[in-house]
Design a protein around this nucleic acid. Structure first.
Lengths: 247, 247
DNA sequence: CGCTGAGTTGAAGTATTTCAAAAGCTGTGG
DNA sequence: CCACAGCTTTTGAAATACTTCAACTCAGCG
């Protein structure tokens, strides 16, 4: 039972060549290319694994997941995408999606046709540079996660996931306030970390008992002991920020 | 005890702009840019995680691993690289490596300085298109592996690894002969699949007893029952080839 | 007030790791 | 040609981490 696609591809006109600064792909698209914008609601599927498609998604607001599933229905979340992230679902043939994109919250994406995206990359060096940094950040983040999926314990995987989301969520505002709101269940966090929801729960409980973090209203997470979290995750907040936050 | 770097970055002159076809990045670099070529021996480290660097590697011959390690020394191989693969070790800051690159065999890479690479990408659409396809193939391959690291059994992970390597090794010559030579130990295959070497051994034994494959001289693998292998891996040879082989 | 979905907990089962020992293979020097 | 060292593979037994199943709690919501 394949889920229904909630959105179909838009065709827009060509993007004009306008140099953009290094932090504002999404602002540029909102201001100048309103016709690419598409709203989505929680639970919508923007793209299914194996579907044909011809756009690159830039997240303007809200949360998306990129996931893949095994035949038995087990799902692995390959990555989350949030404001400013670029989601290019291409497999090697550049026309079939290698992943399923689903909305965790409502929000907006810019669905930029391939050719327009290419043109921007070709003709604006600022845009190209930023896109390359975002791409490198994606790759690095996924490598860190592969390491922990393959060789880390449940505590390491979960601690890293929290730390990564802290870094990604706080990066724009540079605050050090270690509170994050995650719009997801423990089941989803399990699909992200390769754990069962039951084991996510137990591992959280152990961290809470150890005074490392606290959880309110399902899943507002406050980190009481960032050093202990980094220790469990196997990487410091600052090192991780340097690795995965484009500048 | 950090290993010694075996190679240092070369600076070369600018690449001239020459259109290249869609299957020959490495041939172009061998013919036209011999000064970028660097030989490596088995066991050499080409780059260490956290090192500064300023090149993109294109594999001309031989096998490389890209890996990351946890504090306790556990290593995860993020990807293998072989003839024609592009290895861009960039983290988001574009100057520090996010991975360690090590040689599994002797061989040759072209170490192309960033600016030259960028120039080629900018000025040759054939080159850019091929590089994008290779990049998409990398991403897709890693997503398939993340899925199995997170949610697959040992059999699924190992079967997928063998299948992926079959697809990658046979892709240029289009033969259907299901024999591959892997220049690696079961320990290394364990670091690739997130399993202990002991469990790799046991899982192989079970597959051999089931008549799915055979192993000679340590690790020449012959697949007797490709359908059963694909079944275990959770994806067919053809689907995987479409996903991860650039055309 | 009862329904629903998410989180929590215990008990049992399973997959995988770890430890340890033995066997096989490969190259080296006597 | 043999003996030996060093490394990989193989096998068994015990330990561990994680999952599954099932029951219960709790909060939000009609």
């Amino acid at each position: 039972m394949r889920p229904e696609l909630s959105h179909r591809t838009l065709n827009g006109d060509e993007l004009s060549v306008t140099p953009v600064g290094c932090t504002d792909i999404q602002q540029y698209l909102v201001r100048n290319r309103a016709q690419y914008l598409r709203h989505f609601d929680k639970g919508n599927y923007l793209l299914l694994e194996g579907e044909q498609y011809d756009v690159v998604f830039v997240v303007i607001s809200g949360w998306l997941t990129q996931s893949k599933s095994l035949a038995d229905g087990e799902t692995q979340i390959i990555d989350f995408a949030m404001k400013g992230d670029v989601v290019d679902p291409a497999s090697a043939d550049r026309s079939t999606s290698s992943i399923t994109i689903e909305a965790l919250t409502e929000g907006t994406v810019a669905a930029v046709p391939f050719e327009s995206w290419e043109k921007l990359m070709r003709e604006s060096s600022g845009f190209r540079h930023l896109a390359q940094c975002i791409e490198a950040a994606n790759t690095t983040r996924r490598a860190e996660r592969m390491l922990r999926l393959g060789k880390g314990t449940a505590e390491t995987r979960l601690a890293y996931a929290i730390l990564e989301l802290c870094v990604r969520l706080h990066s724009p505002c540079k605050t050090n306030d270690p509170v994050i709101h995650l719009p997801m269940t423990q089941q989803i966090l399990g699909d992200f970390t390769g754990l069962s929801s039951v084991h996510v729960c137990r591992t959280f409980r152990r961290m809470i008992r150890a005074g490392i973090l606290g959880i309110n209203n399902h899943i507002d997470i406050r980190v009481y002991n960032p050093d202990a979290l980094a220790e469990l995750a196997g990487i410091s907040h600052d090192d991780l920020r340097n690795e995965i936050i484009p500048r």
